[in-house]
Write a protein that binds this DNA or RNA. Structure first.
Lengths: 126, 126
DNA sequence: CAGAATCCACTATGATACTG
DNA sequence: CAGTATCATAGTGGATTCTG
């Protein structure tokens, strides 16, 4: 469990708070779009529309929502250039970069086990 | 992007198929419950009810659904003992173990940046 | 005990239109 | 261009009941 590492120690109340926060973060971030956004950003800075083009299938709305959420959690920095038309750039922060390692890991895993998974599916889908 | 590593190579059709499969897998597995199940299983074998107790807040239905999905993708092995009452055990397969490394990474990340994220949230939630 | 099936509330998502 | 708002709807997920 995500939260296990916090159990059974001195300050019960604090730890419960940390627990539920960890869980909340986990719920927020462990989703498809977040991961794809983090992957897409990588080490680059991208504008809203560039990001939208980069991530196949994401809707305007989902991109906005997930970017807000990532910004709120401090994984993404949003820089607004007060020009007309507006120019908004998104970049991964340090913590965002930290998570990127994990997401990269998952991408590698996906490609490593692709045929393996494909076979498992065929077996399952009688 | 998850799929980028497959683009621009010889056999277009095959690669597109691999692409969409990778994307499908990503969508299936990059979700909160999958991750929590993989974490909970770790190196242990657990029964349905044990798993349910282990993962706080998961409903009977979600656990069943996600276990089926993980089984279908070959990450989890389901062993049924033909007894009364039935005894069903779940274990991570090799590929499941492979993904566990990633999930562990995310757990570590969560705990490492916990206070960082908490601060970012406070700043954001004016 | 494990799980399938049902019902139902609620949420997520896409499409569309509007604003600075 | 980026973002907000609104609406319709498909889908999620919980509670409950039933079965082998």
């Amino acid at each position: 469990m995500v939260t296990k590492q916090f159990s059974g120690s001195p300050d019960e109340a604090d730890l419960r708070r940390a627990d539920s926060l960890a869980r909340e973060i986990f719920s927020d971030i462990a989703n498809k779009w977040s991961f794809l956004i983090i992957e897409a950003l990588g080490e680059r800075t991208l504008r809203f529309t560039e990001l939208r083009n980069e991530i196949e299938g994401i809707s305007h709305k989902m991109l906005t929502q997930n970017l807000r959420m990532l910004e709120r959690n401090g994984l993404v920095e949003r820089r607004v250039h007060p020009t007309v038309p507006p120019r908004v750039e998104y970049t991964l922060t340090e913590s965002g970069q930290g998570l990127r390692a994990t997401v990269d890991g998952m991408c590698d895993w996906t490609h490593r086990y692709l045929s393996h998974i494909d076979a498992a599916r065929r077996r399952f889908d009688v």
